[in-house]
Every structure is written in structure tokens, then in C-alpha cells.
Simulated scan of single mutants.
Amino acid sequence: MTDDLSAPPTLTAHCPDDLLAMVPLVIGFTPEDSVVMLTFAARRAFHARVDLPPPERPDLLDDLSDALLEPAERHGVRLVAFVVHTEDADLARRAAAVLVAAFTGSGIEVIDALHADGLRWRPAVGQRAGLPADGVPYDVSEHRFAAQAVVAGRVVHGTRAELARSVAADPERVAAVSLALEEPPVGPVARGDWRAVAVWVRGTIAHHIEHRTVPSDAEAASILLAITTVRVRDAAWHLMLDAPVDQHVELWTDLVRRAPAALLAAPASLLGVAAWLAGHGALAWCAVDRCREHHPDYSLARLVEDALQQAMPPETMSGGWHWEDGLDASA
């Protein structure tokens, strides 16, 4: 699993403690059994997390390195730092050695490589004079970056599993929306007037974005039903280009948690787009995963997945089309 190949918040690191404190803020959760790559001096900075292979599969470390090196080369990264999160010191050293060799061999300077076990950090490659033999204690919760994140409203989850639970189905709310879906459609949906449907969907979403509210069960049911039509879905997507994206993340998170499985593909994919645009790559992956649980071949989820894997900048989806394109009565 590769997470958060996306734009990071702006933070400046001067020491190992700063690097360690950056990780959960730019990834969105505290990693376990992972390598995190922090990039600097690039055409477009991005950060990434990759699962460590099992200790008995060191042959997979080259694949891990390739998964990080390819986007780093494509985006002109000149400086990187690695933090290997694991309790297995031997695996951390082996992973760091492979990464440092691959990146320096490609002309990318590795400014630091740390092993963090959750309580202490130590160099993952070589020795460093003056450090305790058992590592240096650290606590990222007390770091100034954590305070900045609180002020900025950036949520950090304890683990990736906790982050995934934040977009999991809420059975009671799914049942309420399912009940609302039993009512026959009315208005433009009943008439098949898809342009009018798109206007209503956009207006309803814009209203809730402006007022920081969530749709009623009836509204949620109508939105979820309407965006099964691709052009209506894309009209909702287009709204993200003109409004605070974090508020779209909140709205689509709410709708994903309320969506019946049969209607999950479109809202989960739209959450993936919103999270990607907002720089929340790990959340975008969780949204893609939710879509793939029930709709593994949904094209927009695949588009988000490709964007994340290739560290594509969000501005690649920032224009060139209008929400009314292709929206006629037959949509």
C-alpha cells in the first residue's frame, strides 16, 4: 500500500525531531510498519508512505524502493528524508540501506534516514556521535507542528485503520437514507431532466457547503440517486474547483458514511477526488478502498488511484471543462 502521494502542508524541518513530527501531519495518521518518504527541493513536493514487507521477505525491499523512486524521479526531487516506522531494528536498517543506495545512485541526496519505533528514534544507516545507545526519546504530540495542525484544523488519526473507520458505513444512517430512497422520485429526476437535476444537486451541495451543514435524509437519498448518472456526478465534481475543498471533504465523507452499498461508487469516488485536491492522500486512498469494496471497476475511483500512485498534482484536474458539457435531457 502506498499512501499520500499528494501535496503536503508547508512545514520546515531543521532536525530529526522535526522530521518525525512532520510525518503524521503530512500522512494524516501515525504510521506503523511503514517507510515514509519526505521530499524537498522538487518541482512539486510530495510525501509518501509504503508498507514494509514482512521481515522474511527482504527480496521485496527493491520493489518498495522502486515504488518511491519512480515518482521522485518524475517530479525532479533533489532531496529526500526517510523515516522507517517499525519495532524491527534489523528490518529498518535493511530497508534504509536499500533506499539510500537506490536514491543516491539516481542522483537524489538523502538528507536523513531515521528508524522510529514509536518511542525512540535512531539513525537507520550508520552511526551518529553523541546519541544514546538505545535511541533518542521522542513525543510528536508535544511538537510545535502538532499545535500548528490544531490551529489549522488538520485532523491526525492514530492509525490508518482509524482513518479508514472515519469513512466506514454508519448502519443507522444508511438505514435512514435507504428508507428515504423507497419514496418515488419527484421533480426533474422523475422527468429525466438531467440538466435540471444537476442544477438542483449543485445548488443543494453549495448551500450545505456555505452553511457547513449536512443534507437531510431525503436530500442525501436524492443526491446519491442523481449522481449515479455520470454527467450529474461530474457536475457535482466541478463544484470542487470553485470552493474550499476541505468543506467538500466533510460533505462527501458524510454522504459516503450514509450511502447504501449499491450507491456507494459515486460518492466514494467524489470523496477521493476532494481529498486528493485537498492534499489528504491517505484519506483519498481510504475512499478508493471503500469504492472498491463494492464497485471494483468504477472508472473515477481508478482515476483517483492513478493520480495518487503517480503523484499527479491536483491542478491537472483544475479546468478545461464545464459542468454543463454533455448535460442534455438524456445525459
Rank of each mutant, 00 (worst) to 15 (best):
A243F: 02
M317E: 10
E293I: 09
D3V: 11
D246W: 01
A42T: 06
E172I: 03
V167W: 08
R212C: 15
W252F: 13
P244S: 02
V151G: 06
S216K: 05
A311I: 09
V98M: 10
D297S: 03
P171T: 04
A7G: 00
V156Q: 02
H115W: 03
P314K: 09
V156T: 14
E172Q: 14
G203S: 15
T213G: 13
V256E: 04
W276Y: 11
A221Q: 04
A284Q: 01
V155F: 10
S299I: 00
A218N: 03
R154S: 10
D63W: 02
D139T: 04
G107L: 05
S222L: 14
L119W: 09
S106T: 04
S330Y: 12
S216D: 04
V98F: 06
P244R: 08
A190W: 11
V100Y: 02
D33V: 00
L19E: 11
W276C: 01
H248I: 08
D88P: 06
A311N: 08
V155C: 04
F29I: 01
L60E: 15
E315V: 03
A42P: 10
A265Y: 01
R173N: 00
R78P: 03
A282V: 02
R44A: 14
M37C: 06
V26E: 09
A218G: 12
W200G: 00
V156P: 04
L38I: 11
F40I: 01
G272R: 13
D51W: 01
M312Q: 13
D289H: 12
P132D: 08
A152Q: 12
V199G: 08
S299A: 15
L255T: 06
L264M: 14
L60G: 13
G319L: 06
G130W: 14
P185F: 05
D246A: 14
T228D: 15
E142F: 08
A287I: 00
A190K: 13
D325H: 13
T159Y: 04
L239W: 07
D62P: 02
L20S: 07
I223S: 12
L277W: 09
D306L: 15
T316V: 15
V288A: 05
V177Y: 05
R257H: 03
E73M: 14
D18T: 09
F40T: 04
P55L: 06
L251V: 08
A265I: 08
A48W: 01
V174R: 07
D117C: 01
R74Y: 07
H294I: 07
Q310C: 11
A265N: 05
V100I: 10
R302A: 09
L283A: 05
D51I: 03
